[in-house]
Design a protein around this nucleic acid. Structure first.
Lengths: 114, 114
DNA sequence: ATCAACAGTTCCGAATTTCTGAACTACGGA
DNA sequence: TCCGTAGTTCAGAAATTCGGAACTGTTGAT
């Protein structure tokens, strides 16, 4: 298993952020991470609403989020702990993440961030 | 030629907005429209930076922008006039468009909105 | 040490999407 | 009517996404 790649703050690109968050499933995952205080593991997020996300798809979602710079993933023993990089990101792209989550929160059935 | 579809304000979805603006070429087009006072035609935007965008691609970009709710297109005689729906959009998704354009403006070589 | 269970990743083929040249439609002017 | 211009649609090639199956790496039990 290759080491996990995380872009440096200055290498994060807006198109990658927007692409990553243009998928409602990924937004739901991200919003969970942003809201949850505990470390969000993949399997803890395998079910969102009524759909069970296949684990290869889930793994790919996390990869997209990670490589876009939205989240930080860290292996802790058997499982993977994920957290958002929202503080850093807000420094680089002020107001962006907040506005995006707010936009999704307007839509019924979409996640509200904690 | 089919009539052009524009979503009603309440039908505009954040994922469509983010997807549309996750392509730097489309962002450049959108930023031009947002900045330009005159009606932006397709052909006026065919060249961005050093790349000449094929007209079928350009037409598709405009379609994506239009159907996501970002722009309003109106045929005026032989050409098409496009304008942003930013005022409406800001009402529905406060701060979103501004934050996105600001994010892109951080990147050297990306368009600054007028 | 070996084994089994578990969390997550990688692989790869199928399905979908994107890209763009070529053909086409629509409008306006001569 | 015929031509030129602006933009759309079509269609095939290329690229991307999806997800089941196989795999890797870690922990705990025997």
């Amino acid at each position: 298993m290759r080491p996990l790649f995380h872009p440096a703050l200055e290498d994060i690109r807006p198109e990658a952020i927007l692409y990553a968050l243009s998928d409602p499933e990924r937004v739901a995952i991200y919003a969970q991470l942003a809201g949850a205080s505990g470390g969000g593991t993949c399997s803890a997020l395998a079910q969102l609403g009524d759909r069970v996300i296949p684990k290869s798809s889930l793994s790919n979602h996390f990869k997209v989020l990670r490589e876009s710079g939205l989240i930080l993933s860290e292996r802790q023993g058997i499982e993977m702990h994920n957290q958002t990089r929202c503080a850093e990101l807000d420094e680089r792209f002020p107001g962006l993440i907040k506005a995006i989550l707010l936009a999704y929160a307007q839509i019924p059935g979409q996640p509200k961030v904690g």
